[in-house]
């Protein structure tokens, strides 16, 4: 009944920014280009391979601010479902 899964807790793949907390550092793995917001997210610098850090979380938990390529942008967690990220640290 036990499946041996090799899982690395530091390499966790997440869809969107739903579960990220303050200070998490992530890398964009892929962007689903069929969605509405994906183009805007890429234009803001969130292209595959880019690293970013969560720098602020609003008092009610959403939106969050991230530092990407030296700029600070705020996004609503729900509207980032089109990007898949992995935690770097």
């Amino acid at each position: 009944m036990f499946s041996l899964k090799v899982s690395d807790p530091t390499k966790k793949t997440v869809c969107g920014l739903e579960g990220l907390c303050l200070g998490s550092k992530c890398r964009v793995i892929c962007v689903d280009t069929n969605g509405q917001t994906s183009c805007r997210l890429m234009e803001m610098g969130l292209t595959p391979g880019t690293e970013f850090t969560v720098t602020k979380v609003a008092p009610l938990g959403d939106p969050i601010e991230i530092d990407v390529r030296g700029t600070r942008i705020c996004l609503r967690r729900k509207e980032t479902a089109e990007i898949t990220v992995e935690k770097v640290s």
Partner: peptide, 9 residues
């Protein structure tokens, strides 16, 4: 279209 919320601080 409802725009995605992208805000720069």
């Amino acid at each position: 279209r409802r725009l995605p919320f992208v805000l720069e601080l």
